[in-house]
Design a protein around this nucleic acid. Structure first.
Length: 415
DNA sequence: TCTGGGGTCCTAGGACCC
DNA sequence: TCTGGGGTCCTAGGACCC
């Protein structure tokens, strides 16, 4: 008998929608969508009508007129997501959390305590159901990729254990889009050469896959199709970038729109960087125009930064270069800031000299010292009284934000 | 009927160095 | 002076994931 797989992939089903149905029993069995202008999550009853995440509210209503939109209980999402992943942690410390509602676990070291991987998976599902009231699907296999696919196959509210002796049999019958890394574009490219299942993909010669998808993607997909997945669990992965964006509808590409929006975005990003002492060297901005096409500009500094005003000013310069390069674009629909090349550990006071250099470079700007002191003061006030107690006019933005800040926080990775 | 927000990784070209 | 090759970093864009 082959060695049993010990990798679990656990994934809460239709997570936000399930939480809403848990909190309000009258919503159970109903097609519901979390969100308003856009569908952030849809219950399985809603999915039966073809409703998917990311869909506009109007489009969703057309597909399902009786669809119920519900507001977000963000605190409960965070609490219940943490609690569910915490159940995995009761079995093994080897847990890699992927998002608020999804994680891998390796139970190789705890089977003598809790039974076979399949028994552990069943116990996890039972506990999440009885203690939290939520459905969770689990896949069990020898590799991360196969465990992840197994949990997708198990949905909704199921358990799939892949027998190591029948891995390829299981894998090769499935459609290519279940593979990690195959999205709409790759699926279409494969379909164009008559490939729709993982088995068909596996039989392609390596060179043809690499020619179709590029060397890295081609090789990776080939490995995954033969279930040669070398990835290990990484319990504590550090983030490589941090960013924020805001869809602003259709607004003129004018300073009165751009400046306050960038200041708000810079405030969100820089505060997170300072909280974890992880300033970054590369600043990237993105501008999306009226037709939804977008352009990015980035700059890499010699010294990492995390000061709100410095980030905001650098971002504004980059946005100005974009607009100068696209003089015909008068309307913008989204602005984004991202900071990468993050330092591992950094004494934030070392940032001070950069502020002063910056001052010398641009005479009109405020003194670096004053900015640093202002950031410190704001961070402290927020620590005591909460985010909205003070800030760079985030509440004074002249237009409503499409998504509440509380929801954004759910998607943020730990820095 | 134009689609929210936070991320990761890859590619291709160019600059620069040895 | 011309030519070649390898390595690293940066930039812009794109595909994909949750």
């Amino acid at each position: 008998m082959a060695t049993a797989g010990t990798i679990l992939h656990a994934d809460l089903d239709a997570f936000y929608a399930s939480v809403e149905q848990l909190l309000d029993p009258s919503l159970r069995g109903q097609p519901i969508a979390v969100g308003a202008g856009v569908v952030l999550a849809a219950s399985y009853e809603a999915r039966a009508f073809g409703i998917r995440g990311g869909m506009s509210g109007r489009q969703a209503r057309e597909l399902c007129p009786q669809l119920i939109f519900v507001g977000g209980h963000f605190k409960d999402y965070q609490r219940l997501g943490d609690a569910a992943i915490g159940v995995l942690g009761d079995f093994t410390p080897l847990v890699e959390r992927i998002s608020i509602d999804e994680a891998f676990a390796d139970v190789a070291g705890c089977t003598h305590l809790f039974g076979t991987p399949a028994e552990i998976a069943a116990a996890i599902r039972r506990r999440v159901r009885t203690e939290l009231g939520l459905p969770i699907s689990v896949g069990v296999a020898r590799t991360k990729h196969l465990a992840k696919i197994a949990s997708q196959v198990a949905k909704p509210d199921g358990l799939v254990v892949v027998d190591p002796a029948r891995e390829l049999e299981f894998l090769h019958q499935l459609p290519v889009e279940l593979m990690w890394g195959v999205g709409p574009v790759t699926k279409a490219r494969l379909a164009a050469i008559g490939v729709s299942t993982i088995g068909q993909l596996a039989k392609l010669p390596g060179w043809s896959l690499e020619r179709l998808l590029g060397p890295a993607a081609g090789q990776k997909l080939s490995e995954l199709a033969w279930n040669r997945d070398p990835r290990q669990l990484k319990p504590h992965r550090r983030a490589r970038s941090a960013g924020a964006q805001s869809a602003i509808g259709r607004k003129p590409a004018a300073e009165r729109v751009i400046r306050p929006t960038l200041l708000h975005l810079a405030d969100r990003v820089a505060t997170r960087l300072r909280a974890k002492s992880r300033p970054g060297r590369t600043i990237t901005v993105r501008v999306r125009f009226a037709d939804l096409s977008s352009v990015t500009r980035s700059t890499t500094l010699d010294v990492p930064i995390s000061a709100t005003m410095i980030l905001a000013e650098l971002a504004e310069e980059l946005v100005r270069t974009i607009l100068a390069d696209h003089p015909d674009e008068k309307i913008i629909s989204l602005l984004a800031i991202s900071v990468s090349h993050l330092e591992e550990h950094w004494d934030l006071e070392l940032e001070l000299p950069f502020g002063l250099d910056d001052q010398a470079r641009r005479p009109g700007s405020k003194l670096g010292l004053a900015r640093w002191a202002a950031d410190c003061a704001i961070d402290k006030i927020r620590d005591r009284f909460g985010w909205d107690a003070i800030g760079y006019g985030s509440v004074a933005l002249g237009f409503s934000r499409s998504v509440p800040d509380a929801f954004r926080k759910l998607a943020e990775k730990d820095l």
